[in-house]
Design a protein around this nucleic acid. Structure first.
Lengths: 141, 141, 141, 141
DNA sequence: GTGGTCTAGACCACT
DNA sequence: GTGGTCTAGACCACC
C-alpha cells in the first residue's frame, strides 16, 4: 500500500501543511517503512491535482523537521525520528493546540467529556497499529 | 476581577484569534456575568498594546458566533447561550478542530494516549462544575 | 461575463454588506460556477474604487457563513451549499430580517399588501428556476 | 390599551430606531387614535429601562418625520400622515430593503415562496385592523 | 463614553 | 499572482 494522502480545499490549513501533517502522522504511526520511498514530488502532485511546487515545499519542510530524508537518486525516505523542538517549546505548542480545541468544543456546545471522547475515538482510528515508538517525556504517565 | 486577557506575540495563532478563544472560554465557563460588560474595544487594545481594530475584529467574530452581543453606546455583553449551528455543521467543525489537534500532537511527538490525556486534564481544569452560573471564585474545587 | 458587482455610496447599508448580499445572491442563484473564482480582493477593490480591506471583510463574512471558501494563493470560490445554522437560529434570523423589512415598509408608507407584493415580484425575478445548477445564460455550452 | 412597546437588546438595530419603527407602525396601522397621547418620555424610559435621552431622541425623529407632533403641555400625538420622501427615494429604499430580505432568506435556505409566505403571515399579524389609510402612490391627500 | 465602518499602507504565507 | 493579518488614523451613530 503506497500511502494514500488526501487534501481538502477550503480548509483553513494550507495544502502543503496538510501534506506535512499526513506524512508526519503516517511516519510516526509506523505506516511507512524505512526502506519504502515516499511518492515522488511529480507523482504526488499529479495524484492530488496540485502544483508540484506545493509538494516540493511540503517535503522540504519535512526534511527540515527531520521527519524524512532525501537519498539522492532514490527518493525520499522516513528518517529515524528525532525531537526537533525543545521540551518547553513542545509543551507550549501542545498547550496552545489543546486550548484551541477546547474553546471550539465548548463553543459548539460539547461537554468536556464529549470533547475528550471525540479525541479518543479519533486517535484510536489514527493509530490502529501499536508501532508508536517515540516517547517524548519519559514516563508512561 | 474584570477578566484578564493576555496575548502572546509570535504565536502561530493570530492575535484576534487568541482573544476570541479566551473570551469564548471565559464566557462559556461562566467567568463573565451577564450584566457585566466586556472590556471596551479601546480599553482592551490599550491594555494589550495592540490596535483597536484587532480587538474590534475579535469582538465582531464573537458577535457573529452568538457568544456576545453589542449594545451600541454601552459595550459588549455576553449573550444568552444558544446553539447557532446545525448538527452537521457542528460535527464538521468539531471534526476539523479535533483533526487539527491530533496532527499537531503527532507532529510534536505525542502518543495518542498522551494527546487524549492532555485534553482530559485540561477539560477538568476548565470546567469546575456543569452549571453555567457557577461561582468562579469560591469554587467547588 | 465575470460577475458584475456594484455598490452605491451614501446608502444606509454599509459597503461591505452590499458586497456580501450581492455575492450571496449570485452564488445562490447559480450565477457563479464552482470552478470559477470570484474577483480577487485587490481586483474588486480597484473596480469598485474602494479599499481592499473592505472587500476582504466582505469575503471573510461570506466564508464564515459558508457561502464561499478561500483557497489561499488561488482565490475565492463558491463552496458547496450547506445549511450551517440550526433550525432555531434560522428562524431567529429570518424573523429579524422580515421584521426589518416590514418596519421599513411601514415607515415608507407601504400597505401590508404592497409590501408582500414587492417581495413577491422580486423573488420571481431572482429565481428563474429551482435548480442550483441552472444555466443562467442560455447555452448548454 | 396604552400601546405596548418592547425593545430587544443585542439587535443590530439601535434602541431608538426600534422605538421609531414601532410607534410608526402602530400609527400607520391605526392602533393609535388621534386624540390619544403617546407615553411620556420619562414614563416610557422607565417602562423600557432605558435612558430618557434615548426615548427623547426617538420622539424627536418621529416629529421630524411628521409621524407625530407635540402639543405642548399635553403630550405627543400622532399627526395626520404626510409623505416625507420623494417617490424615487421611497422606491430606492424599499428596493434595498427587499433585496436585503431576499438575500438573507436565500442564504438561510428559504425558497422564494417561503420568503413571501413569511412576510405575508407577519404583515397579517401586524395589521389586524383595516384602518390603513395611507396610499403612497395615488394619494388620499 | 461606546461600537461600527472605511481608508491607507504594510508585511506575511501560499500557489 | 492570491488571501490573511495588523497597524494607524479617521469619521459616524448611539447612549
Amino acid at each position: 500500500m503506497p500511502l494514500t494522502l488526501s487534501i481538502q480545499t477550503g480548509s483553513t490549513v494550507s495544502i502543503y501543511r496538510q501534506i506535512v501533517e499526513q506524512v508526519c502522522a503516517a511516519a510516526l504511526a509506523g505506516r511507512l517503512r524505512e526502506d519504502e520511498p515516499l511518492p515522488s514530488v511529480r507523482g504526488l502532485a499529479e495524484q492530488l491535482v496540485i502544483n508540484p511546487n506545493t509538494v516540493s515545499r511540503a517535503y522540504g519542510e519535512l526534511v527540515r523537521e527531520g521527519v524524512i530524508e532525501a537519498r539522492p537518486g532514490r527518493g525520499m525516505f522516513v528518517s529515524r525520528r528525532r525531537q526537533i523542538y525543545s521540551a518547553p517549546e513542545r509543551a507550549r505548542r501542545m498547550e496552545q493546540a489543546v486550548t484551541s480545541l477546547i474553546s471550539e468544543g465548548f463553543l459548539l456546545g460539547f461537554t468536556p467529556d464529549q470533547i475528550v471522547e471525540e479525541v479518543a475515538s479519533r486517535t484510536r482510528a489514527h493509530a490502529p497499529s501499536k508501532a508508536i515508538r517515540s516517547n517524548p517525556k519519559g514516563g508512561s504517565r
